[in-house]
Simulated scan of single mutants.
Amino acid sequence: MDVSNDPLRTAELTVIGQVTTASNVTLVCEAEQDGPQPLRVVYKPVRGERPLWDFPDGTLAEREVASYAVSQALGWGVIPETVLREGPYGPGMVQRWVDTVEDGPELVDLVPVGEIAEGYREVLRALDPSGHPVSLVHAHDPRLLRMAVLDVLINNADRKGGHVLSGVDGRVYGVDHGICLNTEPKLRTVLWGWAGESIDDELLTDITVLVKALPGELGTRLSELITEEEVRALEVRAQGLLENPVMPLPSGARPIPWPAF
């Protein structure tokens, strides 16, 4: 594929804003392209990554790109197109911006206990900042289920509700995959509504394709972004789902990221 004229990869980035709620430096940029409007992207420079005790320093951008590669290999398109490239503040992750639905129902939400709408699954009950009992819920949506399975595969340690986007194109996207693909079990997610349930044959077929692709070009590409041990751990997790096609149950002291949004 000729990427020489792809603005996501090659166009100069102009910073127009910053996501101030993000843990790491997250900049909103525009890249010139053919057409009336510039391409909007998210740019996370490596130099803006906050050190973590359980992930090697300076590796979060590569993990974002590796997670995108896994999503693409599955054919699910859960993660917006993501690349590694130079930007105004050095190398980093650049990802296509997702235009989201403004007034539609939330895919992940907090609702008063006992007021769960049809088509939603309860994950847990807690107290909101005012002390009122609330339920953390998410939609029973096959697009969201794919995201939940992807999180198991990439060992996502930080699937918050705010990382789930409903695109104006009718698709559901997941963002913020910097702390994924560790060799140690670290799954923390708000998408526990399918825990303990069987995985559909259609999804298992896609996981089979992923497993078969790992010894080839996909594995080579991933090994340029994460360690060989982490690639192997991905293969083990995928093979484990094929051998026991059931969504895992929460385990450990922190199965849900906090804050959840």
Rank of each mutant, 00 (worst) to 15 (best):
T189V: 10
L218P: 08
Q72E: 15
G77K: 05
Q18R: 15
L52C: 12
I16D: 03
I256E: 06
A148V: 00
E106S: 15
T183G: 04
E122G: 13
R159Q: 15
D6N: 13
S251C: 03
L181E: 08
G174K: 12
P257H: 02
T100E: 13
E122V: 15
A238F: 01
L203R: 01
L13F: 09
V3I: 09
L214C: 00
T82K: 08
E228I: 15
G92W: 02
L204C: 10
N155A: 12
A260N: 00
Q37E: 15
S198E: 05
R121S: 07
V246A: 04
G35R: 09
V25P: 08
L127A: 04
G170W: 03
G35E: 07
T189S: 14
D151R: 11
E229Y: 11
E184Y: 14
L60H: 08
A117N: 08
T227K: 01
F261P: 09
A126W: 12
W76S: 13
N5T: 15
R143P: 07
L210R: 08
V134S: 00
M1A: 14
I179V: 12
V19R: 14
L74R: 11
A139N: 12
R9H: 10
L84Y: 03
R143Y: 06
V108C: 07
A139K: 14
C29T: 08
A31Q: 14
P248V: 05
I199H: 07
K212Y: 04
P7S: 04
T227I: 01
E230A: 14
Y68A: 11
G131S: 02
G252K: 04
E217D: 15
V231S: 11
G196W: 05
L127H: 11
T220R: 14
D109R: 13
C29A: 00
R121P: 06
A195E: 12
C29L: 07
G92P: 01
Y89Q: 09
D200S: 13
R47T: 12
I116L: 09
P248C: 03
Y68M: 04
L74Y: 11
P91D: 02
S71A: 05
W76G: 06
P129G: 11
K186F: 00
A238T: 07
D141K: 09
W258P: 12
G58K: 06
L52S: 11
M1W: 13
E217Q: 15
V246I: 10
S198H: 00
R121K: 12
R9L: 14
P142H: 05
D141E: 04
P105L: 01
Y68K: 05
L191C: 01
V172D: 10
G92Q: 01
P105R: 05
P51S: 00
T26L: 00
G92V: 00
P129Y: 14
E230P: 00
W194R: 06
L165T: 07
R63Y: 13
T220D: 13
H177V: 10
V28E: 10
D99K: 04
D169V: 02
T220W: 00
E86C: 04
M1S: 15
G252L: 03
K186M: 10
D169E: 10
G58Q: 09
R237T: 08
L150I: 08
V113T: 10
P129T: 08
L13I: 03
V42L: 14
R146S: 11
T183V: 13
Y68T: 00
G216F: 11
H132V: 06
P255G: 02
S67W: 05
L210F: 02
P185M: 03
L150R: 11
A69K: 15
L241A: 05
L218T: 08
L242Q: 02
D176M: 03
Y43T: 02
